[in-house]
Every structure is written in C-alpha cells, then in structure tokens.
C-alpha cells in the first residue's frame, strides 16, 4: 500500500514520517502524475489559499477527483479539510475546494493565531483522549447524510468521515501520536462507499 502526501506547501514531512513509522510506503506528491497507483492521499495542513493556488497552477483538481473515483482514499488535515469540503464558509473569492466530501467547513473559525489552542478530544473508537492541536483552525459547520462524526470539541465537529474520506480540523501529525494515522490506514483506506 502506498500513501501519497501532497507536498506543495505545509506540514507534509510530519505526515510522511508518521506514516513511515507505521510501516506504510509514502510518496511526496508534487506533480499530478505521481497520483497514479496510490491507495490514499493526505492533503496536509498549510495555508489553504497557497495550496489551492498551487493545486490549480499544476492541474491537480481533476486528477485528484478522478483518482478518488478510481478508489484512492483521501484525508485532509486543517487546510486539507477545507480543500476536501463541498462548501467553504468565508472562502476567499476564487478559492475552489475539491468538493468531494459532504461537509461544510468554516475557515479560520476560531479567530487568529492568538486563539489557536490544543485540547483533549474523545475520538471515535479510541480508549484514551487524543490531544488535538488547532492552528488558526477551521471547523466543520455541518455534515451531510452518510457522514460520520468522529470527534467534537465544545459542541463543534472537528473530525468526520464519509466512507473513504476523512477530515480533521486539527493536526495529528504535530503530536507524535500515530492513532489517527493508524485509523486512516486501517479503516479509511480501501473502505467501501456505503453508510459506515
């Protein structure tokens, strides 16, 4: 199984290190042709406007949608969750999401950096809390049918999954705790597209 990490900008190296520690093969994806034959793709945290512009300039939108159609699972963290969403609230004009996952995401939902925080989360199926690191984070404002809520903070959805699509508004790759990466590899990659 090979997992790609979109390496245009942001915290892609940390995802690659965590995946490799779990024994997964990885590819740092900088060109659309590197999407071929991937079991999954992580769209990492970074600046969603910068990543979106580079995705557009290098023609990533349609190839990602096509590969997903052919069975490639996707996980978006923070900026990546914004890019997976069907709808972005407070989007920058001209910013286009991939619109693959039936969630509505609000950008910079908590405010500016001074409002960035970390907190313990009860994550679906985990016995111990997961420390969520939220950096100028978005939140998931609403989810469509068939989307499972995996974690909430203060009554707000911060992790959700729709078949083989996963969105987290926090940064598991910054904690050294591999449990969400393990969940992605075990449960999300290769998942059938039915109601979980």
């Amino acid at each position: 199984m090979r997992i790609g990490v979109l390496a245009l900008q942001g915290a892609f190296r940390e995802h690659i290190m965590t995946l490799e520690a779990l024994g997964a093969g990885t590819v740092a994806v900088r060109k659309p042709e590197q999407l071929d034959d991937l079991s999954g793709l992580i769209v990492p945290g970074g600046e969603s406007t910068a990543i979106g512009k580079l995705m557009d300039a290098y023609g990533f939108y349609d190839p990602i949608r096509q590969q997903h159609g052919a069975g490639m699972a996707l996980w978006g963290t923070c900026a990546g969750a914004i890019l997976l969403a069907r709808t972005v609230v407070d989007a920058v004009p001209g910013q286009e999401p991939l619109a693959l996952m039936d969630i509505e995401v609000r950008r910079n939902a908590y405010g500016r950096q001074i409002d960035s925080f970390e907190a313990d989360l009860a994550f679906h199926g985990m016995d111990e809390p997961f420390r969520g690191v939220f950096i100028r984070a978005p939140w998931i404002e609403s989810v469509g049918e068939g989307v499972e809520i995996l974690a909430e903070h203060d009554g707000v959805i911060v992790a959700a999954r729709q078949y083989d699509l996963l969105a987290t508004t926090f940064h598991p790759e910054l904690t050294g705790d591999p449990r969400v990466h393990r969940y992605f590899l075990d449960e999300v990659v290769g998942a059938e597209r039915r109601i979980p």
């Binding site: 945290g45 925080f117 950096i135 100028r136 910054l174």
Partner: peptide, 18 residues
C-alpha cells in the same frame, strides 16, 4: 484547552513550511 503553548506557537511555523 490551552492557548499560547509552545506547540501551538511552533505549529503555525510548521504550517508555513515550503
């Protein structure tokens, strides 16, 4: 929840990489 932690501070720099 905690704000202004070292991880939150260095975390934003991590997001700016590349």
């Amino acid at each position: 929840p905690e704000t202004g932690t070292l991880r939150v501070k260095t975390g934003l720099a991590e997001m700016l990489k590349g």
